[in-house]
Amino acid sequence: MLLILLGVLLLHLIILILLIVSTAASAWSVGEGRNTDLWYSCLTSKDGYHCKPAIDEDWIQAVQALMILSVLFCFFSLIAFLFQLFKLVKGGRFFFTAIFQVFASVFVMCAAIIYTVMSPDDSAHTQFGYAYVLAWVAFPLTLISGLIYIILRKKD
Rank of each mutant, 00 (worst) to 15 (best):
G91A: 12
Q84R: 07
N35T: 14
D58T: 11
A54I: 14
D58A: 15
L2V: 02
L2M: 08
Q101H: 13
V71C: 13
G129N: 06
I144L: 15
L43H: 05
Y115V: 01
F76N: 11
F103Y: 02
L16A: 14
V102Y: 02
L141D: 05
A65Q: 04
L134E: 05
W59K: 06
L134M: 15
D156V: 11
A112N: 07
A135N: 03
A131H: 03
E57K: 13
M1P: 08
V8I: 13
T97K: 07
T126M: 08
L66G: 06
A111I: 07
A138Y: 07
F103S: 01
A124R: 08
V106Q: 06
Q101L: 12
T116A: 10
C51L: 08
L82E: 10
L66S: 03
R93W: 11
E32W: 12
I68E: 01
I60L: 14
A65T: 11
L16H: 09
V117M: 11
H12V: 00
K87G: 05
A54T: 12
E32V: 04
Y40A: 00
I144P: 03
L2A: 07
F107T: 03
Q64K: 12
V30I: 15
L147A: 10
F75W: 05
S145P: 01
L16W: 13
P53Y: 12
A24P: 00
Q127A: 08
S22H: 07
Y115G: 02
A54L: 04
W39A: 13
K155V: 11
D58K: 07
I113D: 01
S22G: 02
V108N: 10
L5E: 07
L85Y: 08
A25S: 13
K52G: 02
R153S: 09
T36S: 11
C42D: 06
I151E: 02
E57W: 05
T23G: 12
I14A: 13
H125N: 14
H50N: 09
F128Y: 14
A24S: 05
T36V: 14
